[in-house]
Simulated scan of single mutants.
Amino acid sequence: MAGEVLDNKGRGDVSWSWPPIHPEGRKFGLITAAIALVTAFFAWETIAWPMAFLTLGVLAFFRDPERVVPQADDVIVSPADGLVSLITEVDPPVELQIDDGSGSKGLPAGKVTRVSIFMSVFDVHINRAPIGGTVQRVVYIPGRFMNADLDKASEENERQHILIERQDGLAIGFTQIAGLVARRIVPFVKPGDIVAVGQRVGLIRFGSRVDVYLPAGTDPKVLLGQKVIAGETVLAELGSQKLIEGIAQ
């Protein structure tokens, strides 16, 4: 199905398949599987069985399913799988605003809506581009490893800012934030790369969060507490401002 065009009129062919494992996770799966096999060979069942289950958990964590990405100029798609844990008005990170000498003007100053998506260890951890365009900035900042569900994790945790700019000048910034057990943010892109909307841009190992900074004058189409899917869920429509209410049930 990869690369095939599908639509809301029924065009295209689909079928269920096991999601592939991202190469970043295969080495961890091989290590735990090898330990499980060796301990099973020596009949150390108290170690072999836990390692076998750990192998399945590692492979599930690094799963990399295909996604059907909406193709429309006015949509911003979710860069992460997970729970919408915070929606708040903030100033964008200074690293995404200042003139860094690259020729990219960065995000304008002023309050914008930040949508925070918390990824538990059960979510897919491959992050995707919310819009298509040129990667203007990839800024890594070392920091702490607090619970990524906390608001202050945006300023204190280890994190990586990414800025993507379209040809028409629209720029979207988002931040990958390491969590309580996450210990590495892995980028797949660098400044100057051209990416398509929904393209894989990186991953965070073992529980984390992604913050997305919407342009001024744009409200999210997702609700607090909603589950979103990277590359598929429409996070916002450009220029659309509307209160949307939901009921948990």
Results as ranks from 00 to 15, higher is better:
Tyr140Pro: 10
Ser17Glu: 15
Pro19Trp: 04
Asp73Glu: 15
Ser104Thr: 07
Val90Asn: 01
Val68Arg: 09
Gly103Asp: 12
Arg63Ile: 14
Arg159Gln: 12
Val84Gly: 06
Asp123Glu: 12
Val138Pro: 08
Ala248Gln: 01
Met146Lys: 02
Gly239Trp: 05
Val234Thr: 12
Pro187Glu: 04
Glu232Trp: 00
Gln241Glu: 14
Phe174Pro: 03
Glu95Lys: 01
Pro220Arg: 03
Glu165Lys: 12
Asn8Ala: 14
Val124Asn: 10
Val77Pro: 08
Gly198Phe: 03
Ala178Met: 13
Thr46Glu: 13
Gly82Thr: 08
Phe41Arg: 12
Pro79His: 03
Glu89Leu: 15
Phe118Gly: 04
Phe41Asp: 08
Met51Gly: 02
Ala248Leu: 12
Gly225Pro: 07
His125Glu: 13
Asp219Gln: 05
Pro93Met: 08
Glu165Gln: 14
Asp13Lys: 03
Asp99Leu: 13
Asp74Gln: 09
Arg26Asp: 11
Ala34Thr: 13
Arg67Asn: 08
Val228His: 04
Arg114Thr: 12
Ala34Tyr: 00
Asn127Pro: 07
Val124Asp: 03
Arg183Glu: 09
Phe122Tyr: 12
Gly143Asp: 05
Ala40Lys: 03
Ser208Asp: 05
Gly179His: 09
Ala129Thr: 02
Val121Asp: 06
Lys27Cys: 02
Leu56Asn: 02
Ala148Met: 05
Gly192Gln: 11
Pro79Lys: 03
Glu66Leu: 13
Val212His: 11
Val5Cys: 09
Gln249Pro: 03
Ile172His: 05
Leu107Tyr: 00
Ala33Asn: 13
Gly25His: 05
Ser104Met: 06
Pro92Arg: 02
Thr32Asp: 02
Arg184Gln: 15
Asp151Trp: 00
Gly10Trp: 01
Thr46Phe: 13
Ser102Asn: 04
Leu86Phe: 09
Leu83Trp: 10
Gly106Cys: 10
Gly29Lys: 01
Arg114Tyr: 02
Arg63Val: 15
Asp100Cys: 02
Gly143Phe: 06
Ala153Glu: 11
Val68Trp: 07
Arg137Tyr: 00
Val222Trp: 12
Leu224Ala: 04
Gly3Cys: 06
Leu163Asp: 06
Leu238Ile: 15
Ile247Gly: 01
Phe28Tyr: 15
Leu150Ala: 14
Val197Ile: 15
Ile35Pro: 00
Trp49Glu: 04
Glu158Asn: 01
Ala153Lys: 06
Asp168Lys: 00
Met1Val: 14
Ile126Lys: 01
Ser15Asn: 03
Gln249Lys: 11
Leu163Glu: 12
Ile172Gly: 04
Pro108Gly: 02
Gly173Tyr: 01
Leu54Phe: 07
Ala236Cys: 13
Phe206Ala: 14
Val138Glu: 07
Ala129Phe: 05
Phe145Met: 06
Gly202Lys: 07
Val124Lys: 00
Thr113Gln: 14
Ile177Ala: 01
Asp193Gly: 05
Glu4Tyr: 00
Glu24Phe: 10
Asp99Asn: 15
Ser102Gly: 08
Phe42Ala: 14
Ile76Glu: 09
Ala178Gly: 11
Val189Ala: 11
Ser17Asp: 11
Pro108Tyr: 01
Ala33His: 06
Ala129Ser: 14
Ile204Gly: 10
